[in-house]
Computed example of a mutant assay.
Amino acid sequence: MPIATFHISEALLTAESSARILEQASAIYAQELDSPVERTRVFINRYQAGAVAVGGQVCSVSGSPAAFFEFIVLEGRPFEQRTRIAERFTTLLSDVLAVDAAAIRGRCSQVKPEDWFIAGAPASEIRKREVEARQQEKAHG
Rank of each mutant, 00 (worst) to 15 (best):
A25K: 01
R41G: 08
L97P: 00
E132H: 08
A25T: 06
A139L: 12
R107F: 15
R134I: 09
S62D: 07
R134P: 04
A103M: 04
S109Y: 13
E125P: 02
P122Q: 12
Q81R: 11
K112I: 07
E38P: 01
V96W: 00
R127V: 15
E70A: 10
R105L: 00
E75R: 10
I72M: 11
R46M: 03
G120L: 11
G55P: 06
E130W: 09
E114D: 15
A139G: 09
A49W: 00
A119M: 05
A53N: 05
V96Q: 05
G63C: 11
I8S: 02
V131I: 15
I104K: 03
E16Q: 14
I3T: 13
E87Q: 13
E23H: 04
I85Y: 05
A119S: 14
Q24P: 05
L92T: 05
W116P: 01
C59D: 01
F43C: 12
K138G: 09
A123C: 13
N45G: 05
A11G: 04
A133L: 15
A101G: 06
M1S: 13
T14C: 07
I118N: 06
S109N: 10
V99A: 07
Q48R: 10
I28Q: 01
E32R: 15
V131M: 06
Q24Y: 05
T40C: 14
S94K: 02
L22Y: 00
S35C: 14
L74R: 09
T83Y: 04
Q57L: 11
I28M: 00
R134G: 02
V42E: 03
I44E: 05
R129S: 14
Q31R: 15
V37A: 11
I126R: 15
L22I: 13
E10Y: 00
F117H: 10
Q31K: 15
C108Q: 13
Q24G: 01
P36E: 05
Q48P: 08
A15Q: 10
A19P: 00
T83K: 13
E80P: 09
L93Q: 06
W116V: 08
R46D: 01
C59V: 03
E16L: 05
S64Q: 10
A51S: 14
S9T: 01
A66L: 02
G63Y: 08
A101Y: 08
A67C: 11
P122T: 13
F43Y: 14
L74S: 06
K128D: 12
P36G: 09
I85C: 04
S62F: 03
A51E: 09
F71T: 08
E87D: 13
F6K: 03
A123S: 14
A19G: 03
A19I: 00
S26L: 03
V52A: 10
A49N: 07
L12C: 04
S64D: 14
T5C: 11
R41C: 10
A102K: 12
E38S: 14
V54A: 01
Q110Y: 07
S17V: 01
E70R: 07
L92Q: 05
S109H: 12
W116G: 02
F79I: 13
D95I: 02
I3R: 09
I3K: 08
V111D: 05
V42Y: 04
Y29D: 01
L22Q: 02
A139F: 00
L74T: 07
V73T: 14
